[in-house]
């Protein structure tokens, strides 16, 4: 039996040099815990998309995670502009990203749909002018204790 563990990483808007470092650290935590590779991959992909959103759109934010024997839950909260229309933002291909972000390979309007696709449960809360909070959960089918 492994105890539940949790942690937090801080994110800085427009810091493209370190963009992805938080998701990379989370991936490291999951690897150390012996979580199955496919679950690590899904978590890392969702976390990275969410982290890039904060780097691109927000002033700052944080990524909190909690890993139990049954699930991984991640919350990414930012101080940003907020999302005026979440349904629209969830549409594949819809994006408000400026050109320089597109030229970096992001902002193609696939980020939120990708998070939805990679996770078992996904919630968005957003207030225009205040910020956005994403929460997602990935189930560890039989717990990760047997594999550790």
């Amino acid at each position: 039996m492994i105890n539940a563990e949790e942690g937090v990483f801080f994110l800085t808007g427009k810091d493209f040099t370190n963009a992805g470092a938080a998701s990379s650290s989370l991936k490291g935590v999951l690897e150390k815990r012996g979580v199955p590779q496919d679950i690590i991959r899904r978590t890392a992909i969702a976390a990275f998309e969410a982290e890039m959103n904060v780097i691109i759109y927000a002033v700052a934010g944080m990524m909190k995670y909690r890993i139990s024997n049954t699930e991984i839950s991640v919350t990414i909260q930012d101080m940003g502009q907020g999302i005026p229309n979440i349904d629209l933002a969830m549409t594949e291909g819809y994006s408000t990203a400026p050109d320089y972000i597109r030229e970096m390979g992001f902002g193609s309007g696939m980020g939120l749909p990708n998070i939805k696709k990679s996770t078992d449960h996904f919630v968005i809360n957003s207030m225009v002018g205040e910020g956005t909070t994403l929460e997602f959960t990935i189930r560890l089918a039989n717990g990760d204790k047997e594999r550790a």
């Binding site: 963009a19 992805g20 990379s24 590779q37 890392a44 992909i45 890039m52 390979g105 980020g111 990708n114």
Partner: peptide, 28 residues
Amino acid sequence: SDVLSFSVTNSLLVTGLTNAQVIRTAEM
């Protein structure tokens, strides 16, 4: 995001971008 969405493990990626996010994408 397309790479993150559709690629499978044990792949090689052909890309025209050379920034750090490409390495991060490959990692994830």
